[in-house]
């Protein structure tokens, strides 16, 4: 049933996709660079891979030496990164025979955590993320329509179906991210896929949050079908338009979720005048 992707490929996708974050002005807040900064970066890449479902719960990470090589870091830096992930509950490490580092089932984000994150952001920030997400999605859909072969299309249909039958919030989130990333994969573009992984890592935790009791599921099902069918027909322009429409709808939902959360807090906290 689960057609889990092989480990090395997705890890390759997260490698080097986060450009070394520019140091904050005046070095505020940032790590002291060097090993600490690199480890933090690798930890963030692995966390994104877990968050978008490239690495499923229970997956065993490759041996340290191999993983370090895949991620382009030293074994020492990798160990530091794994320690950070252990601390955040993203992985667990078992010793002895059959031991190793495993992806923990920590992808579930509580509604309260998402609400707090939505409150802390601004509409402008979310719109900006939506602009990038829309550009990536639209391009990936267009190129996928031009380049996807029968196998790619089967895979996209399979993932779209998995989304329809997702039974929990968690499954919706992972199925949705996997489909989006697979579309970029069907476009045969490594960079678009990497960018897609990164953007889905930012969008998906915020997207599956109900506004006025509603999730964007119905619209997503409809849009996914339109995208996948346009790709299957090889209609690049329709695929691009469907991708853009889908992305705009996602952005609207996230912004409404943000506005609703800010307002809930503003009207429930005792505020004189």
């Amino acid at each position: 049933m689960s057609s889990d992707t092989l480990l090395p490929a997705p890890l390759g996708l997260v490698t080097g996709l986060v450009p070394s974050a520019p140091a904050a002005p005046g070095g505020a807040g940032g790590g002291a660079g060097g090993a600490g900064g690199r480890a933090e970066q690798v930890a963030a890449q692995l966390e994104t891979a877990v968050c978008v479902g490239l690495l499923s719960a229970g997956t065993r990470l490759p041996p340290e030496r191999e993983l370090a090589e895949q991620l382009g870091v030293t074994v020492l830096q990798l160990r530091q990164a794994l320690a950070i992930l252990r601390e955040r509950g993203i992985i667990t490490t078992r010793r002895g025979n059959g031991g190793g580092s495993f992806v923990a089932d920590a992808s579930a984000v509580s509604r309260e955590e998402v609400a707090a994150r939505l409150r802390g952001l601004s509409t402008e920030w979310l719109r900006d993320l939506g602009d990038l997400s829309g550009s990536i999605t639209a391009s990936a859909c267009r190129l996928a329509a031009e380049r996807a072969d029968a196998t790619d299309i089967d895979r996209l249909r399979e993932l779209a179906t998995a989304f329809v039958s997702a039974a929990s919030l968690e499954q919706l989130r992972l199925a949705d991210s996997r489909l989006h990333i697979a579309i970029a994969g069907a476009a045969q573009s490594r960079r678009l896929t990497a960018a897609s992984v990164q953007v889905r890592g930012e969008v998906s935790p915020l997207l599956w949050h109900a506004v006025d009791g509603e999730l964007p599921t119905a619209a997503a099902v409809e849009h996914h079908t339109a995208i996948v069918e346009a790709i299957a027909r090889g209609d690049a322009d329709a695929a691009r338009r469907a991708g853009l429409l889908h992305s705009e709808q996602e952005t609207r939902h996230v912004i409404e979720a943000h506005l609703a959360e800010v307002l809930t807090e503003a009207t429930s906290s005792p505020h004189q005048h």
């Binding site: 904050a24 002005p25 005046g26 070095g27 505020a28 807040g29």
Partner: peptide, 14 residues
Amino acid sequence: WWRRGPSGRAAFAK
């Protein structure tokens, strides 16, 4: 010019 960083601490902006 000084800016508040992600940690909330103010620092000189270069």
